[in-house]
Nucleic acid binder design. Sequence first.
DNA 1: GTCTATAGCTGGATAGAC
DNA 2: GTCTATCCAGCTATAGAC
Lengths: 177, 177
Amino acid sequence: MEVASRLFYKQGYNSTGINQIIEEAGIARGSLYNHFPSKRDLLTAYIQAMEESSVAEWDEVIAGIKDPRKKILAIYDICIDRQIRSDFGGCPFIKVGSEIPCEDVGAFEMINKQKNADKSYFEKLIKELYLTNAEYADKELLAATLFLLMEGAMVTSTIAKDLQPLRNARKIAETLL
Amino acid sequence: MEVASRLFYKQGYNSTGINQIIEEAGIARGSLYNHFPSKRDLLTAYIQAMEESSVAEWDEVIAGIKDPRKKILAIYDICIDRQIRSDFGGCPFIKVGSEIPCEDVGAFEMINKQKNADKSYFEKLIKELYLTNAEYADKELLAATLFLLMEGAMVTSTIAKDLQPLRNARKIAETLL
DNA sequence: GTCTATAGCTGGATAGAC
DNA sequence: GTCTATCCAGCTATAGAC
């Protein structure tokens, strides 16, 4: 049941109880524990589902754009749109990473994997952009910049409940590209 | 008692119980509730204490440096040092912001105030740097860039348990200045 | 496989002795 | 003001009927 996802994202993992999940999902306690042996397994499923839907959304939007430069800026637009849709809920992975105990190595690895994938996504688009322009040496640093700006803008936007940080990041990206 | 601060930072606010706090602090339940009527009040005190110690550390380090450019880079060095000291604990304000319910407007305002102060700190240093150079128009956007890079690098470093994102951010800042 | 009932514990908070 | 004892609600998880 992925009503859990909604609650984990909105309220946080620790603040969401099994009771609430089964109640809102309209199922029984035992049924849930049959599919997910523990709450922790629900978290794993949640993170994986978010990973897949996130990259799927990026791919989908990118597919309709030809100019690599516009592709990169479209990523920023997606994030702006997500913040609006989620009422400034922020990045689900950063949220989870902030509340799980650091002993939970497995969860951190999943999150880290996802963030590395995002960064690689930027690298891929940067390479596409500078395919013909070999003189631009430090493509990786540029991708890292775009990624860090994005992450910083997301957390800042979430705390301030304001889109301006993301718009700023987009503007900066525009001048960098 | 600010043994609570240590636990809030290390384990998270939600994951830290009153029981553990009084136990590790070696005091009784009632004593704590005399000074702090609720756990929430402990959180307020925690955030304020972190705010003060953070800005104090910045001021202290900055005071020993003359070149404005080096001052800004020193801020990045402080953050690198903090990540080492805290074993990649990350920014306490972002952590708290990720786990408290969004209804807690008071907490969000405190955190937001602190983040705005950080951003203003960058703006102040930028103005100092470009005092004689009036032609550099968009000082605020540059400060915003430095701030967003810092925030992004902090969260990324925390998730990856790696200093490289912060070192990258510092390198980027060097080229921007 | 899905249900109810309940175990076993820990959370935050209060009452009242001293 | 500091202590101990205790309340009650909530948590995760299990047992066992159907």
